[in-house]
């Protein structure tokens, strides 16, 4: 696995010479700014409204963590549904379209070198997105006093969701040679994953076991606790399992090129 770094390094460089990375980063930053301002203003209005109503009880319940940061981070994970597939769509698909897949597969590399290299390239990008998102709550520390640990836990949740999305995006990209197909496919998988809790609420099959399983399968369920500041090993394990599962699938998919 000594070549993971070579593969990841090349991939990150490639992302930064293409316009895709800059488009995603700047769009992401703009949307983050817009949503952040919207949440802060909403918070502001509630404060003013409660003050006018002299509702001191409700006023004391308002806090920056629950009513700004948590909502902001949650809305940013929705933006990740679009941003991550745009970053990962080319990871394998472009390799096939360029013909460079033949170079990688005839080099003394293991499939894990290639798969992990691609995943880490995406992971570096997600950390970058996490930094952009983190900058906004950091502003609040200058003007208020949100709880730092809860904020960090929420950010961790966002990054873990992002990493899971990368693993899924890498997998989708390994299935096709078209970047557009890879984008749509990973977006479709992510969207279904995102909607699973709602599906579980419908309770179509009428089985509690299935409902629980669907809720467990969704990133949303686990994100909620992290946003509330509950860093439970159960949730960390969930993200580890999801990432590992999709990377194993990717490995099988890349390997299958050889057996077709």
């Amino acid at each position: 696995m000594k070549h993971v770094g070579s593969i990841a390094g090349r991939e990150v460089r490639a992302l930064f010479v293409s316009p895709v990375a800059y488009c995603v980063l700047s769009l992401f930053a703009i949307i983050a700014g817009f949503l952040f301002v919207a949440h802060v203003r909403a918070f502001d209005e509630w404060v003013i409204r409660y003050q006018q109503m002299q509702a001191f009880e409700q006023l004391s319940e308002l806090n920056l963590n629950d009513h700004v940061i948590m909502l902001f981070l949650q809305s940013m994970t929705v933006v990740l549904l679009f941003a991550v597939p745009a970053l990962t769509m080319g990871l394998f698909a472009a390799e096939k379209a360029n013909g460079t897949q033949e170079l990688l597969l005839t080099s003394p590399l293991t499939i894990w070198d290639i798969v992990l290299g691609k995943f880490f390239a995406g992971a570096i990008f997600v950390l970058l997105l996490g930094t952009i998102v983190g900058a906004f709550p950091a502003l609040l520390f200058a003007y208020g006093d949100p709880e730092p640990l809860r904020t960090l836990s929420g950010l961790l949740g966002l990054v873990l969701v992002g990493l899971t999305y990368v693993a899924i995006g890498v997998f989708a990209s390994s299935l096709t040679r078209s970047q557009i197909v890879a984008f749509l496919l990973s977006f479709a998988i992510l969207f279904v994953l995102f909607l699973l809790p709602a599906l579980a609420e419908l309770d179509l099959a009428g089985s509690a076991w299935l409902g629980d399983f669907l809720r467990w399968l969704s990133t949303e369920t686990h994100l909620q606790d992290l946003l509330k500041g509950l860093v439970d090993t159960q949730h960390l394990a969930y993200f580890a399992v999801m990432i590992a599962a999709f990377l194993v699938l990717t490995k099988a998919s890349v390997e299958s090129v050889r057996w077709r």
Partner: peptide, 21 residues
Amino acid sequence: PIAARRAVGYLPETLPLYPEM
């Protein structure tokens, strides 16, 4: 396979080039 691949230089029919590098 790793040692065998290390001993081969291969020019495929479609050039395996990364255009941005």
